[in-house]
Simulated scan of single mutants.
Amino acid sequence: MVENDAQRRILLVHAHPDDETIGTGATMARYVAEGARVTLVTCTRGEQGEILVPELEHLAPEREDGLGEHRIKELEAAMAELGVTDFRFLGGAGRYRDSGMAWDEHGRRAVAPDDVRPDSFWMADLREAADHLVEVIREVRPQVVVTYDENGGYGHPDHIQAHRVTTYAFVLAGVASYRPDLGAPWSPAKMYWTAMPRSVIQHAIERMKEHPDNPFRGVESADEMGFVVDDADITAAVDGRAWLAQKAAAMRAHPTQIDVSGPFFALSDKVGHEMWGTEHYRLVCGTAGPADPATGYEPDLFAGLGI
């Protein structure tokens, strides 16, 4: 049971270990440092993830199927780097299995594979899964909830399912007559979706054109990336550049999934700081707070809440 002694409380819902660090690691580290209660719910253990460490290939699902247990340890190490102490799995570790993914015919959008297992998160009963999150929301009582958009960012079925479960639970948690056994009702004030602005990706594409390890080689427009969001749809930008070292350390704690030495995460100079130190969001429920005149975005996900 979490003591709700922190005035500001934020709940983030992610699909697999490592997703939280890549998309929201700087935000999490910043709010921990500022004294907010940061709660992370991860929906699967990431059993189907690609293994980037050769000596751990025996953990693959087609061999020992031990990657999920290993990724729990990676998540623990990453949270230690970010300072997050309240992290848990939806329904308990192993309740929902990583669904895996495939790529569409264009190779730009993730889709569900043909052989999705019945115990996968993609196949989960929506209300059952949402009830697990309702219980967490009522326990933690966050003012702010963060998850993915309706496309799961880039189409991964587990990201889409995390979006569905979070959206359902966000509403149900505040209904007094719904499942009173799951705790007293609580309605968060705001919900955000994670987002990557088109301008940020386009800037990186332009800056990296002459780089020998250009991760965008052959790409001319950010629209080709498949996960960008119109700048006009962005409502908040959390400046976490002061915590970029913690985010990088947390990414290094996920070695089976992230090659921090690779060009995509080692973008040079200002590009890397811009892409990974400032994290962007779309407000989809609640009222926006005052915007930063310099950016036009809310600088704080708690903006306007008076806390």
Rank of each mutant, 00 (worst) to 15 (best):
V13H: 00
T39N: 04
W193R: 11
I10W: 01
G92I: 03
P255N: 09
A237L: 05
A15L: 09
V146W: 06
M196F: 14
T27K: 02
W276H: 11
K209Y: 00
L59W: 07
V53H: 01
F265L: 13
T278K: 12
D269F: 10
A232E: 14
F170R: 04
A173M: 07
V271I: 15
L11T: 01
A129D: 08
L283F: 04
P299G: 12
R207V: 14
A130Y: 05
A253W: 03
R8E: 08
E3V: 12
G35V: 05
L56K: 07
M208A: 12
W122D: 14
G155V: 07
R97H: 11
A102E: 13
L82P: 00
M225E: 06
V41D: 01
W103K: 13
Y192Q: 11
P113G: 10
V238A: 07
A60R: 15
G91P: 01
D231E: 07
R45Y: 01
S221H: 14
N214T: 03
H273S: 09
A248N: 09
W243Q: 15
G183E: 08
P290N: 04
A102M: 10
E3D: 10
V145H: 03
Y297E: 00
A102Q: 07
H70D: 06
D86L: 02
A60Q: 11
P290G: 05
V238M: 09
R179Y: 02
Q143D: 10
D65T: 04
F264E: 05
V38G: 03
M251C: 14
N214L: 07
G262H: 10
A176R: 13
T39A: 13
H58D: 09
K209E: 12
E279V: 06
N214V: 07
G49V: 03
L301R: 01
V229E: 09
L75C: 08
A60P: 06
D5H: 10
R198L: 14
M196H: 12
S221M: 08
I307H: 08
T42S: 11
Q48Y: 00
R95Q: 12
R88E: 13
P118W: 01
E81C: 15
V53S: 06
D233L: 15
D181H: 06
L11D: 04
A204N: 08
H203T: 13
L52I: 03
E279N: 03
